[in-house]
Write a protein that binds this DNA or RNA. Structure first.
Lengths: 237, 237
DNA sequence: GTCTATAGTGCGATAGAC
DNA sequence: GTCTATCGCACTATAGAC
């Protein structure tokens, strides 16, 4: 386990995925404990199982027709829980939305902090950051897709959290590029614009999944392609 | 005029914008004439003026809170037309959606065919295609943003048209890259993945406008940056 | 802990006055 | 050509049976 963590995302997408699945249950347990005032269910096992089902079903339905358009009747039918049952897990459709966004943010934070090492050299840090980001969004694709496409329907404070997350990711890349520039390993005219371009190509992976799936391009293939492309951009000379 | 067209988008964003505004009115006139069965208004001047207002208002409202969430009552209040008046320009909310999408598609087609020349050398074609695409999405940013973010709420046939447009743009870049490869001017391992990456960076311009605006980056600055970046990627050696 | 039945709200769409 | 008034419907949310 310690070795696996030390290797970052080097063990490939499957090892990464195995760890993520465990984290999802953990985080739903946390959500259950934190919201025990509004959640009327008392048995933790039942509640966590249903919360995972509610979140997954909501993401699936919303990603094919939008969260606003998805009625709680749809969610009830697809999840197998009645309207009444649903309302013992959240007090409004808005609260359901907040719970989902918060679950995703916690997952993201947990995984990113686990896989980023300050003491690696810039070039390794750059390729690790790209690969980890791709793996993360591959495993949590429905959530990232959801958070991105529903962002404009959110309330102010929720929107700000989405934007903050976006800029935080970009900042990771800006810092790596500037560190590489200072060390003379990279020659990157505008770290800000370059980081922004990297971010755009990373986002394409979870926003246009249909395209890559249709073309039989795996996340590892895309990672290799993207790392090479970025290294060409930042290479001196 | 002939010179302007011959120079493609070389005259900068402002010349481009001037031409586009004229086109919008033309296209609304076409829409009016084509839909005269469902549009109850008879005076062309009145109808076109109101159609432009309806489209603009719908895009503005939808881009801040989503098309589904925007009620026709909202649209009525913001546009200054009553519910009854609105319904003399379209027969359902769905038809309004179709009219907007069709208006944008016509604009896109008209502008792209006007600015792309088959007989230029690959390198010039590549930079012209990037610049023209950026100018187009700059001038019609609300429409592109709308078409992208509402795509999943559309019906099957409308969705297919959005995807077809997406792939058509990508094809333009694949063809240019392959032509350059064949001529020995480019050395691009995977034209498909590279075109897809270029597309992702082009889309970032209209999807993340808030970010570029906040950083005071103009469309011309972004164009110069992106063209240089892409030329680095495809350069041999 | 989960269900069914229903109250209350706001929507898309239309009819008819002006 | 545009308005106001209104209908029927689908939604969120809740109350009370089991």
């Amino acid at each position: 386990m310690q070795d696996k963590e030390k290797n970052g995302s080097a063990n490939g997408i499957e090892a990464f995925r195995a760890e993520a699945v465990l984290s999802i249950e953990e985080i739903c347990t946390e959500i259950f404990r934190r919201n025990q005032t509004s959640i009327k269910i008392k048995k933790e096992a039942v509640a966590v199982k249903n919360l995972v089902k509610i979140f997954d079903t909501t993401l699936a339905l919303s990603n094919s027709k939008g969260f606003q358009t998805t009625s709680l009747r749809d969610l009830s039918a697809a999840s197998g829980l009645s309207m009444g049952a649903l309302y013992s897990y959240f007090s409004s459709k808005d609260e359901l939305l907040e719970m989902i966004l918060s679950q995703g943010r916690q997952m993201t934070r947990r995984i990113l902090t686990r896989y980023i090492y300050a003491d690696d050299p810039p070039k390794k840090k750059l390729s690790d950051a790209i690969r980890t980001h791709l793996y993360l969004t591959e495993v949590m694709q429905p959530w990232f897709y959801f958070a991105y496409l529903e962002a404009k329907n959110l309330k102010r404070d929720q929107q700000k959290k989405v934007i903050a997350g976006e800029l935080a990711t970009e900042k990771i890349f800006i810092d790596i590029l500037e560190e590489g520039n200072a060390a003379g390993i990279f020659a990157c005219d505008s770290p800000v614009l370059t980081a922004s371009a990297i971010k755009a190509m990373l986002q394409d992976w979870y926003l246009k999944r249909w395209k890559y799936q249709r073309r039989n391009i795996s996340v590892d293939t895309y990672a290799v392609f993207l790392i090479k492309l970025v290294e060409t951009i930042v290479a001196p000379g």
